[in-house]
Amino acid sequence: MSTAFAHPVTVWIVGATLGLLLLAAAVIGLLSVTGRASPLLRRELWLRLGSWCILLPLMLGPVLLGRVWTIGAVTLLGLACLREYDRATGLFREYLIVGVVVLGILLVNFAALDHWYGFFTALWPLTVGVIAIASLPLDRPAGYVQRTALGIFAFMLFGAGLAHLGYMANDPGYRPIVLLLLTAVALNDVAAFTFGKLIGGRKLLPATSPNKTLSGALGALVTTSVVVALLAGAIFAGTPMGHPALLLLFGAIVSIAGQCGDLMLSSIKRDLGIKDMGVLLPGHGGVLDRFNSLLLVAPAAFHFIGYYVGFGLAGPTRLITGG
């Protein structure tokens, strides 16, 4: 327990998250008691809060518990995202391709668990190569580009990309960084929604996502950049990343990558003509509807921090395979 909460930023983030949940419960409770919200809205709000009460322990718990738990949770998240994506796009009918993508997700997370960066990076071109040849023996060229492209896209997002989040756990000081990313993308969503509602104005990309506004996007960019820069300042003080300009740039990258992940999923859904990717999380939709922002943030943040500071560079490597 003392290790889990060793860094003050970990304590701040977990404390603030719990505080926000309690505050939300109090506000919704007040709305219910005073009858100021319609029964439908109240039900929707309680449903969302209920989902968060289950989701947050599932998200923050593994990070606090340790390295293996974190990588395990990222693996399960990748597989859950793949399931929703393959059913929405129709890729699930291509058993061979899906099988290769599942194998790729398991292997890339194994490489993270093994702390073997060479294998971790090698798996991107290798898995893409196997996806490209997996369906050749079927002798069914019709639809080849579609199934191969969908498979590669899936591996990039839910395997190679997302696994960066788990790989961070190889650094002894990973907890505040991963918690910061998990909560920053949620803050980013909330800020975009709030600024959009408060200011309104021009739509961002109306054909892709009719509810998003330019003011919301800019408001989220400023809010997330500042909050992330402040917290990251406490994490990276005394390292080459400790410069205010770099910290703000890091915050901006998290915000922009998060919003782009959201817009990417909106584009997928618009193209398919569906509203939600799944029904697993009441009030949210599917797992992907909740975690879309994280997909691009994980590799972007990893390589930014990696460039200036690195992850687990002093620790032992190839913990399982040896060598």
Partner: peptide
Amino acid sequence: MDFRLRPARDLGLA
């Protein structure tokens, strides 16, 4: 060549 994206027939069912 066009992509023919066919979501699962049971998409969105509880």
